[in-house]
Design a protein around this nucleic acid. Structure first.
Length: 895
RNA sequence: GCGAGGGUGGCCGAGCCUGGCCAAAGGCGGCGGACUUAAGAUCCGCUCUCUCAGGAGUUCGAGGGUUCGAAUCCCUUCCCUCGCACCA
């Protein structure tokens, strides 16, 4: 299948096949039921479209790498996978291919599972969950019934998109274009009122929004999106007495502006508007011809009604206006043109009075003479809070206080919290979903199917227009569980978001026959510690899952009220800055990449390309570079003689080995921190840097210390193993490791990252300086390079300077004998320190500098092909040595 | 309009939380060299400008500020992406 590897790579196909089989044979990724509090790592399960795409690969590589990392750290890990297997695409595919959704879906799952295996994702397949199986959707039905018992299910009429040709409801996304046509047949979509089943998520609106504050492991963006979506508004309801119609309620968040309410407006479909239309030609014409709720212009029509402002007692005109929406608030509002932009525009258009009743609060410094100046609202509304004016006895009150007092004072006013969130309509007039477990009886109405009769299974698929369940006459006909009379089954199925709102609980006990999940185990294993998926689910899925978790908790089946502790919304994989999509034809197939370069390369490239939450561009060059890196690594390990004498410990007299050993520690320390926070890109950079260091070491030092080199390779392999597991298994074996690298211990390091970085910097700066000198001075062939470490007293002086807060640093330094004895040199250095005082940073000790430079000398020797001497200050000529400073050795190059 | 995130050298991308060691990691691309019959692979070096032995100048969307010192902190402004929106 794969062509010969590009360039001279390694045989990734053989490596990957071998380890996938080995893992499989040993059930390497099994999480036993008796695991105690495993770390639960989860990627959002996919819709089985039949093809794994790059988004999936990225998503699941993130969870896989993290799961493997935690496992190497010694955790027991739960990392399952399943299928969001219901949904309309399968119905369409089945019709096109003359098969049925079930077979089609199961085929797709088969294919995708194979692709996941070829990516090397370490899932516990024994916990696989497939939502379209009766074993699973039975529990959707069961939960629906429990919800019903809790009073959280409601059946009511709702407006839906209806295609008269296909005879089915369409989701909003399936209505195309401004002229709203059916995506499948192009028929104009109608609105139709249908009886629909709802789950009362609004009962949990407060907890859902308040709980966001504590979800510190979630990105702010997602939390904000959920807040917006729930749209909690605190305000007041207040009634205006409308002539001949009684009290009409309006909702407002600005009751403080009620004295400026100079008109009242009704939604076009408000009952009063509809009544008026029957008698009033103007209103009828407006409703039929002019009203345009989608337009930008606020349009309206005057009525012959007036409303009494309960605060002022004044009669104000009543309009029917298209910017008043019946599904917002009460479908009626008080118009305050002085303090609301839209009301202002409307009042200008209709010639209504505009009265300012809130003035800007006097700034702190300003003299408070008790007479705030009303703002000029003739051109624009003043929409901020402030101090009341023109409001009778409320004048002078701050807006917030005025709202409270007015709410208390006005009879018809009461505090009210309003939400944008609507109850969750779960009815779908489609075949490929969970049948809603209800029977309709002429006498008893809708009746739940008894629990013992669950699941209500789907009948055979019938290729028909409209809802196949409606056409399944035999299936439909049943008897009423209550009275035994003739009855018909509910033909609606559930929204597939119902399936996904609890699937993470099913993984805990996927085969359990008498409950959706094992309560004790779920209490121990939940919540999901790290959840990873696309941002497109920020609201719907993630909100529904939170809702269902809370309800289940209230049914005393779970001790957790939030399902996902930490959430990562992973970025997109793009090509040339554009989202990959079939329609643009810019899709890079993961399969092709796996064939050509292997799964390890694909995974490693993706993880090092960018932080997981950021979008990044796919780059074929980057992939090749990654592939070459793996190839190099493999060769490096192979070249290392695994049977080399097992020297124990580091030879303390070999500074180069000590240096490399220190680099190994540093890499571990840095990479571990980064793995913890899922910043794989920087962790991997460290691992790759370590491999370069090791290669340089072997190539150019006078013989390597086997123990150090072995440890370096072992560490590099382990740091890379979570991301490139197949090759790392091979290398682990090559290095004589026991068992799987999957089960190996994460390397430990007691390295001080600070010191390691200081050392690196010293070496880098020194090398840079040598280059600089050679370059600037035009030295062609250096004969010898001397690197001289600053004398102890300068280090001491720096230490003193760092601690000192004396105004005269030179004076303070001269108070120390060991410094003063260096006379002018000490004074000069003291002045330098004084000048740089604020910028001083600690340096390594003289010995540490000496060791670090000695260890790195070979780097310079190799580069300039000249012998390097690292000297202590007292070993060098004073004319050179005196230029040395801590962190900045003196350099002398002989031509 | 409101809210969130982002703008870094030819490109991608670290750094920004916790200011100084930042002309700014790493990769890609480009240039030069080693190896090679050659190409590829591999390895070494260079890749903002000037330079008199490690120096100087200009740079991190733009402008201003704080500070001895700003890619990093604060304000203003422009641009991009995303979410919400006649929401009362």
């Amino acid at each position: 299948m794969s062509e010969s590897p590009p360039e001279e790579g390694y045989d990734h196909a053989a490596v990957e096949r071998r380890w996938q089989e080995a893992w499989d044979e040993t059930d390497a990724y099994r999480t036993p039921d008796d695991a105690t509090d495993p770390t639960y790592v989860l990627g959002m399960y996919p819709y089985p479209s039949g093809q794994l795409h790059m988004g999936h690969v990225r998503n699941y590589t993130i969870t896989d790498a993290y799961a493997r990392y935690r496992r190497m750290c010694g955790d027991s890990v739960l990392h399952p996978m399943g299928w969001d297997a219901f949904g309309l695409p399968a119905e369409n595919a089945a019709k096109e291919r003359d098969t049925n959704p079930r077979d089609w879906t199961l085929d797709c799952i088969e294919t995708m599972r194979g692709q996941m295996e070829s990516m090397g994702f370490g899932y516990d397949w024994d916990r696989e969950v497939t939502t379209c199986t009766p074993d699973y959707y039975k529990w959707n039905q069961w939960l629906f019934e429990r919800f019903s018992e809790e009073g959280l299910v409601e059946r009511e009429a709702a407006e839906v998109n209806w295609c008269p040709n296909c005879e089915t409801v369409l989701a909003d996304e399936q209505v195309e274009g401004d002229d709203e046509r059916c995506w499948r047949c192009g028929t104009p979509v109608e609105q139709r009122e249908l009886d629909q089943w709802f789950l009362k998520i609004t009962e949990y609106a407060d907890e859902l929004v308040d709980g966001l504050d504590d979800l510190e492991g979630w990105p702010d963006s997602v939390r904000q999106m959920q807040r917006n979506w729930i749209g909690r508004q605190e305000g007041a309801r207040v009634s205006f007495d409308v002539s001949g119609r009684g009290e009409v309620e309006a909702f407002t968040t600005r009751l403080d502006t009620i004295h400026g309410a100079t008109f009242f407006a009704l939604a076009p479909d408000h009952p009063i508007s509809e009544e008026l239309a029957a008698a009033d030609d103007d209103v009828r014409r407006f409703l039929e011809e002019e009203a345009d709720p989608d337009g930008d212009e606020p349009n309206g029509v005057a009525t012959d009604l007036t409303a009494t402002n309960p605060a002022t007692g004044e009669e104000v005109p009543v309009f029917v206006a298209d910017f008043v929406l019946s599904d917002v608030g009460t479908g009626a509002l008080m118009g305050v043109p002085g303090h609301d932009d839209r009301d202002h525009a409307f009042a200008e258009k209709m010639g209504v009075d505009i009265v300012p009743v809130v003035a800007p609060a006097p700034a702190d410094g300003e003299a408070d003479d008790g007479e705030p100046t009303p703002p000029d609202v003739s051109d624009a509304a003043y929409t901020d809070d402030g101090v009341l004016v023109n409001s009778g006895e409320y004048d002078g009150l701050a807006s917030a206080e005025a709202r409270e007092r007015l709410t208390a004072a006005i009879d018809s006013a009461e505090s009210h919290v309003q939400y944008r969130l609507r109850d969750w309509g779960i009815s779908r007039q489609r075949y490929w979903g969970t049948p809603i477990p209800v029977v309709h009886c002429d006498d008893c109405g809708p009746v739940l199917v008894p629990e013992a009769e669950l699941p209500v299974e789907l009948p055979e698929f019938v290729n028909t227009t409209g809802n196949p369940l409606d056409a399944a006459e035999e299936w439909k006909r049943t008897t009423c569980p209550d009275c035994g009379g003739e009855a018909v089954r509910e033909t609606d199925t559930m929204d597939t978001f119902v399936d996904s709102s609890w699937y993470f609980l099913r993984y805990v006990s996927p085969d359990l026959g008498d409950a959706p999940f094992d309560v004790d185990r779920a209490n121990d294993w939940m919540p999901v510690e790290q959840y990873v998926g696309g941002i497109e689910h920020a609201v719907m899925h993630l909100l529904y899952a939170r809702f269902v978790t809370k309800v289940v908790a209230d049914m005393e089946m779970l001790e957790h009220r939030e399902p996902f502790e930490r959430l990562l919304a992973q970025g997109m994989v793009q090509l040339d800055g554009e989202k990959m999509s079939k329609s643009k034809g810019n899709v890079v197939s993961p399969q092709r990449i796996v064939d050509e370069y292997g799964a390890d390369t694909a995974r490693l490239f993706m993880m090092q390309a960018a932080q997981p939450e950021r979008d990044f561009d796919w780059s074929e060059e980057g992939v090749r570079s990654t592939y070459r890196f793996l190839t190099r690594l493999k060769r490096t390990v192979e070249a290392f003689d695994a049977d080399a004498a097992d020297a124990s410990g580091v030879d303390p007299d070999d500074p180069v080995a000590a240096y490399v050993d220190g680099e190994v520690d540093a890499a571990v320390a840095v990479a571990t921190e980064e793995y913890d926070t899922l910043t794989f890109n920087t962790a991997l950079r460290e691992a790759q840097g370590l491999v370069s260091t090791l290669r340089n070491y072997r190539e150019h030092a006078d013989g390597v210390d086997d123990a150090v080199f072995r440890r370096g390779l072992t560490v590099a392999v382990r740091l890379l193993a979570p991301v490139a597991p197949h090759l790392c298994e091979t290398l682990h074996e090559e290095l004589g490791g026991e068992g799987f690298v999957v089960d190996a211990d994460w390397p430990a390091s007691d390295a001080d990252v600070e010191t390691a970085e200081r050392r690196r910097r010293l070496v880098e700066n020194t090398r840079g300086d040598v280059r600089n000198i050679v370059d600037v001075a035009g030295i062609d062939e250096p004969e010898r390079v001397d690197v001289v470490v600053a004398p102890d007293w300068k280090h001491r002086a720096l230490e003193i300077a760092l601690d000192s807060d004396a105004p005269n640093l030179v004076g303070e330094l001269m108070g120390h004998d060991e410094i003063r004895e260096h006379g002018d040199a000490a004074a000069d250095y003291g002045k330098d320190l004084q000048a740089e005082r604020e910028a001083l940073t600690p340096a390594l000790s003289p010995d540490a500098e000496y060791d670090a430079l000695t260890a790195a000398a070979w780097l310079v020797e190799r580069e300039f092909d000249a012998p390097v001497r690292v000297l202590r200050a007292d070993e060098a000529d004073d004319s050179v040595a005196r230029k040395a400073e801590p962190g900045r050795p003196a350099i002398d190059i002989a031509e």
